[in-house]
Amino acid sequence: MCGVDYLGSYRLLGLLLILGAAFFTVAFTANRLLSRRAPSAGKNATYECGIDPVGGDWAQAQVRYYVYAYLYVLFAVESVFLFPWAVTYALDGFGMVTVVEMAIFVAVLALGLLYAWRKRVLSWT
């Protein structure tokens, strides 16, 4: 039943993607062709108030970023299930039972948020 009209609904998106990639490629190629380059070691050095940098970079991250990213994954997965639920629960044959099912799902995940809050993961100090 699908085919041309299904793929056709994504025609504009595909065209935009191709145009975007082409724009990016043309812009960067033109820049590469037109610009003058005279690389030197001094230009690659990190600029820090005119003082030569000493030692290496320090870019270690804290573990709490990871927990925040994980919390984001968790609630992204939850919201993904909210989409099919939102278009289904009002249909015939679903109704209250489906609402309760989603309530249990959200409640279990809220337990996780509660745990994170009680363990002071959410406070940034």
Partner: peptide, 21 residues
């Protein structure tokens, strides 16, 4: 499976918090 998934996600979150602390 949908409800079990919530338990799985909860377990993973608690695990991540315990390990990171």
């Amino acid at each position: 499976p949908f409800e079990v998934l919530s338990i799985l996600l909860l377990a993973a979150l608690v695990g991540a918090i315990v390990v990171s602390r």
